[in-house]
Design a protein around this nucleic acid. Structure first.
Lengths: 185, 185
DNA sequence: TCTAAATTTCAGAAATTACTGAAATCACAG
DNA sequence: CTGTGATTTCAGTAATTTCTGAAATTTAGA
């Protein structure tokens, strides 16, 4: 398993970015390698391609599976495990966001609600701030949950239109300004 | 600077989450403490409140300033620096997203474009995959840039409406279905 | 059941990151 | 200037995370 320059460069970048993304270098590199491979790879190929220990590859693959970022594949007459990333970029994106939300946001949302329950009713400012933070997180995650449900095609349209869509929202009414085209100029 | 139970609990949680968020424990705790304080705090108060070394507080505050997450304040007749977080939850959110984008996404987008430029024209699959990834990142960051421009009020409306908005988008036309209410039932 | 390949586990080593205390620097009132 | 308080820097240490190699476990065909 000799990497091309392109693969090498991409893999090293993902390794370096790994720590910023909350994964370690090897995990980043394994993912990068699988992402660029049209064929599924087994642990031995990955180990050789990256120049890390076999056990490190094993642990890295385990973590990627915990993140739900890789898929297991098998070939007839070969009992080794082969790994791939999902083909569909949208699926990958959804998984990434969902998993980061689970690890980085959900525990805090739970904690904030817990703190509000206990309500020691002493520090008004702190309590208000916590409520504000919880509300913000709920608004953002609620919006995401909503977007998540859309078909990819609509989602792309919507994202492409971007703020143009916002022009449709009437600031004061709280309803969409349907059937009434805004005067231009 | 004695912390209330509520503050203590919140601060410890932010410390623990810090590593998942790409900051260290102390930085998380300092931010949490400032976030809950109605009054600006100086480094000495933070040090005492958290039970860390003065130098650690100094480094943590420096990092929070690099993240643009705290504001410096001064009082007449007192030459110490006092720190606060912005009052406005939306401002905090915008800063957080912008800074994470800068650290976690922009370097990769740059690298992907660089890889596409060099174009070794050997590995078609890898090249296509890189292009796909770049396009996805551009779509998402472009959408964010667009949202970012909106007034808070419109943004809240839009997020609250969520997928209801998507119903307005005509899947095939690529344009908004303005002035033509969809038949219901 | 036995065997060998495939994979995982795990204790210790290596690398990295976080933290401290002491010294250096800075800033400003007198 | 000078002296004092505030802040930063930084070398060394502590804590944590990552990685490896060897041993243990799992798996499936013979």
């Amino acid at each position: 398993m000799k990497l091309t320059n392109l693969q090498q460069d991409f893999v090293l970048h993902f390794g370096e970015m790994g720590s910023r993304w909350g994964i370690n270098r090897t995990v980043g590199q394994i993912y990068a390698l699988l992402f660029l491979s049209s064929e599924p790879l087994n642990a031995e190929q990955i180990t050789e391609g990256l120049g890390v220990s076999r056990s490190n590859t094993s642990m890295g693959l385990k973590e990627l599976q915990a993140w739900n970022l890789v898929r297991l594949r098998h070939f007839p007459g070969d009992r080794r495990d082969y790994f791939t990333t999902p083909e569909d970029m949208w699926e990958i994106t959804r998984i990434l966001i969902a998993e980061r939300k689970k690890r980085e946001i959900d525990p805090t949302l739970t904690k904030l609600r817990e703190l509000e329950m206990q309500a020691p009713a002493g520090d008004d400012y702190a309590e208000a701030r916590i409520a504000e933070l919880r509300e913000m997180i709920e608004l953002m995650t609620g919006f995401y949950d909503d977007m998540e449900k859309l078909e990819t095609e609509r989602l792309v349209k919507m994202m492409t239109l971007g703020s143009k869509i916002a022009g449709l929202i009437d600031k004061t009414s709280g309803a969409l300004t349907l059937g009434r085209r805004k005067e231009v100029k």
